[in-house]
Structure formats: C-alpha cells, structure tokens
Nucleic acid binder design. Structure first.
Lengths: 117, 117
DNA sequence: CAGCATCCAAAAGGATACTG
DNA sequence: CAGTATCCTTTTGGATGCTG
C-alpha cells in the first residue's frame, strides 16, 4: 500500500495541509467548540488575517472544518470541526500535549549544544 | 500556563520544527530503527539533499535524533531516534496512521467541493 | 558515502488598505 | 465583523558543483 513516503500519495497532500504551524493551531483551537473569525485571530497570537483565512479555506476544503454564516449586521461567521476534523484533531492532541509538556526539556537540549537553528 | 497559542512560548518553536512536512516524515521513517543518510533520501521520495540535511540538523539540535559517525572509507553516518525523539514520534504515530487511513475520504471531500487548494 | 556552499526560482508570510 | 486584494519581504526549496 502506498503511504505518505511516496511522492504522489494522497496522504502526502493531507500531511502537507495538516503538518503546518497554523493548521495545527487552528484545529487545536477548535477542539473546545466553534469559534468566530476574530476569536481565532485573537486566540492564535501572531497569525495574520491572511494566513488565518487561507488556513481556514484549506481546512474547509479538506472537510475538516465547517463554516457557518449567520446573516446579520454585522455578519457572524463561525467555524467548527466536522466529524472528520474532530478525528484528526484528536490524533493531533497527543502531539500537542506532548510538546507542551516537553518544550522546556527540548529548549534545554538546544542550549546544551549551542544555538544552531 | 503558557502554551503554543502564545507568540513567545517555547512550545511554539518546537511545533514549528516538528509540524513541517519533512520533519514528520523523517521522524516517522526512523521509527523502525536507525537509517543512514542515503537510506533516508531514498525512503522519503521527493526530499532533496539540502532539505534532508537541514531537517536532520534541526532534529539533532532539538535532541530528537542522534547522529553517529563510523569512521571508515567511505564514512558511515547513521541517524537514530533519541528517547526524546522516540517520545514525540510515538505521539506522531496516531496522526500519521490516521491520515493514511483517511486520506482517500479527504480527497473525496475535496473533489465534492471542487479543487480549491 | 555524506554532506556543505552557492545560486536562483518559487512559495510562504506579513502589513496595510479596502469592501460587503 | 469578516474577510479580500495588493504589495513587499522572508523563507523555502531545488539544482548543481565541490570536499573529506
């Protein structure tokens, strides 16, 4: 069976979409329920509007996130995980939590070898 | 506690190193044991020497991968996961396996909405 | 074999201004 | 509010040639 190690495997494309700094943060931010555009922008420090909207479009296109518009003035748009999105976010959880718990150790390891990257 | 959602959190840096297409593939490739440079290059289709060596340097710098040189002619260099690397790779496993198992579904979802990204 | 250095093309990403 | 459009800078990434 072809897997993500192969150039043209679908898994490789999905990996490219998900294994990016912003996608991981957006998906994880939506773990606890739907959020609106400006809530995401506020919650994810340092993300630009451009990157947020671009990332959201990709995730919606992949079927990970659902976009809901409430017609009103001002308009309200909220983003929520689909079942598929909930699935991948769940498997992202282990990674995210592991990093949170070990980030300091890794920083220490970096220091020990001298700042290289 | 600060987490990866914050601009200056260590976790954000680690996330940036790990949540990249090549880092995920390199770490996963090393799951089953040490590999040499050319073995990695062969196994991970489409990776250039530059990207491979750059990714390896980052992972070594983070303490995820150990680099072992056997002085000989020609020289033999092998890369192996450290305990830390084994830890993060293990939590990457869920993500990797999930993608492999659902890639087709996602592609289908993409088709349904029309090729956007 | 295992890589680093260099050059160059392409893509990602940020800031800002503007629209419905 | 929720974006899009534009411009510009930075980073990424590939190809090639060379070293130990």
């Amino acid at each position: 069976m072809r897997d993500a190690f192969h150039r043209d495997c679908p898994a490789r494309v999905v990996l490219d979409h998900v294994a990016s700094r912003w996608a991981v943060l957006v998906l994880t931010a939506l773990r606890d329920g739907p959020l609106r555009f400006y809530e995401l922008r506020t919650r994810i420090e340092g993300i630009s509007e451009k990157m947020l909207s671009q990332t959201l479009r990709t995730l919606v296109g992949d079927g990970f996130v659902a976009r809901t518009v409430v017609p009103a003035t001002p308009p309200q748009v909220s983003y929520d995980l689909t079942p598929l999105g909930a699935g991948i976010t769940e498997s992202l959880r282990a990674l995210f939590d592991w990093i949170r718990d070990h980030a300091e150790d890794i920083l220490a390891a970096q220091e020990r070898r001298g700042p290289g990257t």
